[in-house]
Design a protein around this nucleic acid. Structure first.
Lengths: 127, 127
DNA sequence: GTAGATGCAAACTTTTTGCAGACTG
DNA sequence: CAGTCTGCAAAAAGTTTGCATCTAC
C-alpha cells in the first residue's frame, strides 16, 4: 500500500473523527476539498477495513454503510461503545473489556473478537 | 399492522432462520415461491426493524444490509453472539448478559442496550 | 366501506469497475 | 521502470416509491 497523498488525507480525517460513525458521503464531504475522489474513498476504506483499521457497522433504519476508525493499536484490546442516538463512541477500559470477554468465552462456545464487536447503548447526554 | 398472508410467510421464514444473518436477497429467495414480492419483503423488514423484532447488522466486506430475527421476547434480555466466519448465532445466558451490562454501565457513561448489541467472535466449529 | 398492504415497474441511491494517465518506491 | 493508485464516467447492485389493485377488519 503506497503512501499516497489521498491516503494521508483520508487517514487524517478518520483519526480526527474516530469518535463518530461516518458514512462514505460524510467522509467524501469532509475530504473532497483536499482533493480526493469518491472512488478513492471507497477503495481506501475497503483496504483499511481488510487491515482491521476501520470497522463497518450499521445504524438502525439506515441503509448506507457506516464506518468507525479503529486505527490505534490499543483499540483491538478493548470494546467500543456507541450511542445509538448520537453516534458518539468511547473506549471501554481494557481490564473491563478483558473481564467481559472472559465471561463470554467461559459461558459459550465462542471466542470473543473484541475488535469486531461494538456495544450499543445510550450516552449520558442523550438520556 | 394487518396480519397478511405475506407477513406470515416472512415471519415463518425469519423464525426458521433466526440463528443466521440474512440479506434481503436470501430472504426473498426463500419466500418468493410462497408468493411474496421483493417490495413486501423490504417493507415488512423495515416495519419489523422499527418494532425491534429484527435487527440490522453488517458483515465485513459486504455492502448489503444483513438482518437477524430477534422475535422472541426474551431476546431483549440477553446478548447474541455471532460467528464472523459462518454467521451462526447463539443466545448468551441471561444472567451472564446482565452481569456484562452491569460492568459496562458501572465503568462508562453509557447505559447498555442489550437488544441492540451483537457480540462477534468465532464459534467452536470455525476454530 | 375504509384504512392499510401488495405487486409491479420505474426512479433513486449507493457502490463497484474499466481504463488511461499519474505516482511511489 | 514496474507495479500500484487515482479520477472520471459508466455500469451494476441494492433500495425506495408511486400507483392501481386487493385485503383485513
Amino acid at each position: 500500500m503506497y503512501a499516497t497523498k489521498q491516503r494521508e488525507i483520508l487517514g487524517d480525517f478518520l483519526k480526527k473523527n474516530s469518535d463518530k460513525l461516518l458514512t462514505v458521503a460524510m467522509i467524501y464531504q469532509g475530504v473532497r476539498d483536499s482533493g480526493i475522489s469518491k472512488s478513492a474513498v471507497y477503495r481506501n476504506i475497503a483496504a483499511l477495513e481488510k487491515e482491521k483499521l476501520v470497522q463497518r457497522c450499521s445504524v438502525e433504519g439506515k441503509n448506507e454503510a457506516y464506518f468507525r476508525y479503529l486505527g490505534e493499536e490499543a483499540c483491538h484490546n478493548h470494546f467500543h461503545i456507541t450511542c445509538t442516538k448520537c453516534g458518539k463512541t468511547v473506549h471501554l477500559q481494557e481490564n473491563v473489556s478483558g473481564k467481559i470477554a472472559e465471561l463470554i468465552n467461559d459461558t459459550s462456545d465462542f471466542m470473543t473478537d473484541i475488535g469486531e464487536t461494538t456495544i450499543y447503548g445510550t450516552c449520558d447526554k442523550c438520556r
